[in-house]
Design a protein around this nucleic acid. Structure first.
Lengths: 348, 348
DNA sequence: CGCCCTCCTGGGAGCGCTCTCGTAAACTGG
DNA sequence: CCAGTTTACGAGAGCGCTCCCAGGAGGGCG
């Protein structure tokens, strides 16, 4: 860690001189050391350590055209998403998997349309090997922006597209929202419930509509009085529940599209003297621990492997990067739907 | 945006050829255009647009030794911090200010000692111009790791140091925890309260100890029965409050070192039939909106400009970067303490 | 009208690395 | 023991950019 004059970092050249070999050999050793005599490898290693040599990433990138970095784009008109445990967990999964691939996470935070311009430039400028993005609302321009940058990209959650039709095929990783919802509703049916209501999420988010679709897969043609819409928040869930109780006082079960909404619903149900699960069985979605386990009774809900989804996003992206899917004629890898799992607790 | 052969990005050379000038001139135009005849500037601009030229950051970095990127290091044994609105806000402030400085945010997430090794290598490897870090616990090795990397760095929150003594001077940005606490307690005194208890945060976090110090600044030699320690969580605050009520049933005010703890305390107070603020006045710290405004009564608390602190961290760092404080003899800029403000709501 | 000074512009070196290619050395087998 | 392989290593080009320096054009002044 010493030996280098203060201020200047040692270069390959310096290491080569010290080890009495050529630059090329040092480079080979530093990058895996295959095809170099063990004795030489050792000599180079020693020199590297003595000088405290660390490769200059910029020089490397210049010739390899690989950056060892991936952009994670947070489009976030609502600041909320960042404090959402769901999102944090996904980022953590991404971060962990990137470490495995020796890549860094460059966080791009978009707060408005102007930022999209900036981000587009950044992506095009060749700073990163690829991009990971989260699509929130259907009318969000982000997917388009990223696609235009012609850089490998993977989405978290199935992106919706502004305008109908022309849905470009972009790889994404999503939980099996629809299947999970089906399982949740089937569970309620198996419990003997007949009047199963649904508190849906915002209609412009695919996760919400997919869950709604799963509900309808099982219940086919549900009574409109059994439907209410929330906004994925606790308060929204409470309001929706209140509406439902008016529209359909005879309901005996509720499937809420998120745990947060379920907890709001639970609050209202108890407020109106309905026992859970005796009078009304309740199922949430997400298995957001801090919520689902904290309620009384704890929430039966649909678990998704959030961190695993983060891992998958990175693996998918890395495959695209190494296969260079920006080449004309290259086909992008398919998307991945991760399984969900019904977690039975006390509420249903 | 067209005109370049698919796959290859146009280089400076290509733009120069197109505009009929030299590489050097194009470079000058791209970097501000001073010292170039307006007519030429225009010609180059046109060529840049026609070719869709974007500078190659790696090549640039190689010669300028500037990366246009800053590492943000999250040391986080407890995952919690990421979901903490406090932290999210600070990151947002950082992100915004970095945009102003045309720099990117590289997120480094450390989950354990092994990661420190990785991070140390990364920082030393010359990938970023500087580092922003958050010190959480006093026994955290992160400050040491960063300091050893000899890279400009600014801390969020006054870092504590493992072991006593030898406190290296490292610039940080922190709220005036002590002053804010003083103000909070003085407010309670002004209200005529005489038995003012304190729920402190963890003793190994400077933000907690500083607030405690502020409390003692005003109350000088407080009755030990008026002191309890929490862990900055709601549950911890509740537990501490319960203890306080046993130790000192005659207390007439509580200053909690965080809003979350205050809300826990509030719950216990009401549970035991104490009216807030009539019987017991309560003041929190942080002005974490989602908590302080949601309680009943809303919390009187000490506000800190969290996002502003993020901005300041970046500005401080950028100054260090441009002045190259790693040069021997350079003095690091001083730290900044941002003011706090008492926000009066219903609880005191 | 010539000289000097200023202002622009281009040539060229060089940042630190990878990678191709050529050659020397080591090995194989008949 | 030598021709033919295989393997190990070094020389050198070049990635795309910035920046120093030299030189040319033009303007001001004696």
């Amino acid at each position: 860690m010493s030996g280098s004059p203060a201020g200047t970092r040692p270069t390959l050249e310096a290491v080569a001189a010290r080890a009495g070999v050529s630059r090329a050999t040092v480079s080979r050793v530093v990058n895996g050391g295959s095809g170099v005599r063990p004795a030489l490898v050792e000599r180079v290693r020693v020199a590297v350590n003595e000088l405290g040599y660390v490769p200059n990433q910029a020089a490397r990138t210049l010739v390899t055209r690989r950056h060892g970095a991936v952009a994670v784009i947070i489009a976030e008109p609502e600041f909320r998403i960042f404090t959402d445990p769901f999102f944090a967990q996904q980022i953590r999964g991404i971060s962990r998997e990137l470490t495995v691939h020796d890549s860094q996470l460059v966080l791009l935070w978009a707060e408005g349309r102007d930022d999209y311009e900036r981000i587009s430039r950044y992506l095009t400028g060749g700073h990163v090997d690829g991009a990971l993005a989260f699509s929130v609302h259907n009318d969000d321009a982000l997917p388009t922006v990223i696609l235009r940058a012609r850089i490998p990209a993977v989405f978290g959650g199935r992106p919706g597209w502004p305008g109908a039709g022309r849905q470009p095929s972009v790889p994404y990783v999503d939980a099996d929202n629809r299947g999970g919802a089906r399982e949740a509703v089937r569970h309620l049916v198996a419990l003997g419930r007949r009047r199963i209501a649904h508190i849906a999420g915002p209609a412009d988010q695919t996760s919400a509509t997919d869950r709604f679709d799963g509900y309808r897969d099982v219940l086919l043609d549900p009574d409109p009085a059994l439907l209410a819409q929330g906004d994925f928040t606790e308060a929204g869930g409470a309001a929706a529940m209140a509406r439902l109780l008016e529209q359909a006082p005879d309901l005996d079960a509720v499937f809420a599209a998120s745990d947060l909404m379920a907890s709001g619903a639970l609050r209202v149900l108890r407020g109106q003297g309905r026992r859970v699960p005796e009078d009304v069985a309740l199922v949430g979605f997400d298995d957001m621990r801090s919520v689902a386990e904290a309620t009384d009774p704890p929430l039966t809900t649909v678990r998704q492997d959030i961190e695993g989804m983060g891992h998958l996003m990175v693996r998918l992206l890395m495959r695209m990067v190494t296969e260079d899917t920006t080449e004309p004629g290259a086909r992008t890898p398919g998307s991945v739907i991760t399984p969900t799992e019904l977690v039975r607790r006390g509420s249903a």
